[in-house]
Design a protein around this nucleic acid. Structure first.
Lengths: 124, 124
DNA sequence: TCAGGTACTTACTTGTGGGTAAGTACGTCT
DNA sequence: AGACGTACTTACCCACAAGTAAGTACCTGA
């Protein structure tokens, strides 16, 4: 088992939420799915420049387990799987909006570089 | 150097904000300082059950470098150092409020345990 | 005298998140 | 025939976040 356990005793709400968003790509996945409504595996991979297939699946599985993501499998060949957000995923993404604007401000302040992703990743 | 670098190219605002709050105790430190206004090193240590002194300092130094925390040293013996939030720290903490309530909801949903900290850690 | 308080620093170790790369099973396009 | 697409799985490796423990230098109270 790659990652798991968690759901440990939390100090507070922020702690519990962070537990679920922790992971290099989770917030991006959240955003992609919220933005596009529904995405296939390969579409997500292409949407997140730099993810390895292993990490993508691992994160998707964890998020499914955490009730953030819904996984719809179409029994056909070639395989087709569609990912989308559950209501909890949607609300979590909404809860991240505040962080998003703060972070955008910070990027502006310190003049950090931004990765170009094709379509702009900004929760605004 | 324990930790550093970062400030790397970001995908989006959330990414940039997460970079700064990443770290097991950072959100807790943020909350403690926001709640109490100003705290000494030993007070923080006692307020965060489980932190090692090494991690506390490491996180405080990083947060100082990131402009979230102000460190005031009083040249006296025995030493006295006071930590407080800068305006950016305060606004970051405010930006975490949404996450906090979402997380509290999640704790209720999954019935997770909560660490008792003496005074309740809840951004509400 | 010595435990305990202030605020750290330093060295060593472990756990694991994440990266790399290859394999699988099947189908279509050229 | 071979390249490429779907959606994964598996094995291996490494860097680093975090934990443990001890040391430093000084002062206070019992």
């Amino acid at each position: 088992m790659a990652t798991a356990a968690r759901r440990g005793p939390y100090f507070c709400g922020v702690d519990a939420a962070m537990d679920v968003v922790a992971g290099k790509w989770k917030s991006l996945i959240l955003w992609e799915l919220d933005h596009h409504g529904t995405r296939r595996f390969a579409e997500l991979r292409r949407g997140l420049p730099g993810v390895s297939e292993k990490m993508l699946i691992q994160h998707l599985r964890e998020m499914e387990e955490d009730g953030l993501v819904h996984r719809e499998v179409y029994l056909q060949v070639p395989p087709k799987v569609e990912y989308s957000l559950t209501e909890h995923g949607v609300s979590l993404n909404a809860a991240l909006a505040g962080l998003g604007t703060w972070g955008t401000e910070r990027i502006r302040r310190i003049g950090a570089a931004k990765v170009f992703t094709g379509d702009e990743h900004d929760h605004s």
